[in-house]
Amino acid sequence: MVNFLLIFIGLSFTQIAADEIKVAVASNFYPAMKEIVLQYELKQSQSSENHNIVLISGSSGKHYAQILNGAPFDIFFSADKVRPILLEKKGISETGSRFTYALGKLVLWSSLDGFVEKDERLYSNDSRFLAIANPRIAPYGVAAREALISLNLWEDLQSRLVRGENIAQTFQFVNSGNAKLGFISYSQLMNPSYPVAGSFWEVPQTLYTPIEQQVVLLKKSSLAKDFLSFIESDESLNIISKYGYDLP
């Protein structure tokens, strides 16, 4: 009887430990995702099941490289659609799991009130540094580069550019005052928990390729599939919209 009880407890602990997913999230979406996870856990709180969703924030490019190298992620929320499409083509993601969860917007931001009105500060010399996310690994960096190319400023501003590893680091460059200007995600200014001061210009979407943020399922599990279904629920869509994203 004692041995049976020990076996039963052991199986129960194994089930609890297995009921966990690791979710790789693009830096721009991390604050919104934290709130979505809280809502999901609240909804599941009446259930006897024990869910654990581990969020890993970083640039989409780094997450993509980690996935190719075997990182144990269950879901990947990218800040673009390029990498999810590549994972699908390589057979690394689950077929048919890819969809757009948010449409991002690029802004030129300064932590100084009244400093940014339109794009005129990009043409002046009163801002020593201009922060952007690294275009090699961050989709919002790609959008910033495209906008500057559209404005015929990319080559002229090379000596003033400082590149963040991801959009969160780019935000910190500007927020700390190390750079007076930076291209960031509009969602970073819309975080309800952290009101952001300063001034910004919403970059016309005609100047850059639409930022279509997509997600893919990397490993099948009932928890991962249920969580992805929740992402498309009204509760999640309301949160996504609240954080400044357009809905697909």
Rank of each mutant, 00 (worst) to 15 (best):
S27A: 15
I132A: 05
S150Q: 11
N178V: 05
G177T: 10
F200Q: 07
S221F: 03
L207I: 08
W201P: 02
D156I: 10
S48I: 12
Y140C: 07
E35L: 13
K242G: 06
I184E: 00
S93Y: 05
E165Q: 05
T170I: 07
S97N: 05
S193A: 14
S185V: 02
I16W: 02
P72C: 04
S221W: 01
S233V: 09
S222Y: 04
H63D: 00
V216W: 01
I75Y: 00
S241D: 12
L108C: 05
E94I: 15
A144M: 09
I211S: 06
K22T: 14
Q205I: 00
S27R: 01
L112Y: 11
I167M: 03
K220A: 12
I167S: 06
K220F: 05
Q172I: 09
G198Y: 09
D246Y: 10
V116N: 02
Y186Q: 10
R83T: 08
L157Q: 06
Q188S: 11
G70K: 03
F200A: 07
E235I: 14
A133G: 13
E49A: 14
R98T: 09
G141L: 05
V23A: 02
D126H: 02
Q158A: 11
L112D: 13
H51V: 11
K90Y: 13
S93I: 08
A65Y: 00
D119S: 13
Q188A: 04
E117V: 09
Q188R: 05
S111M: 13
H63W: 01
W154L: 08
I167N: 02
A168H: 08
N166H: 09
N28P: 09
G141A: 04
S233D: 11
V142E: 13
D80F: 00
A18F: 14
P31K: 01
K34M: 13
N166Q: 01
T209S: 15
E49M: 12
Q44G: 07
E146L: 07
N52A: 09
K62Q: 10
V116W: 02
I92P: 03
E35Q: 13
P192M: 10
D113Q: 08
F73T: 03
P135K: 02
D226R: 04
Q158W: 08
A26R: 00
D226T: 08
F227M: 03
Q188V: 06
I75W: 00
I53M: 05
P192I: 09
G177M: 09
T100P: 04
V196D: 02
Q66P: 00
I92F: 07
L161D: 08
V203S: 08
T14I: 15
A224Y: 02
G10S: 15
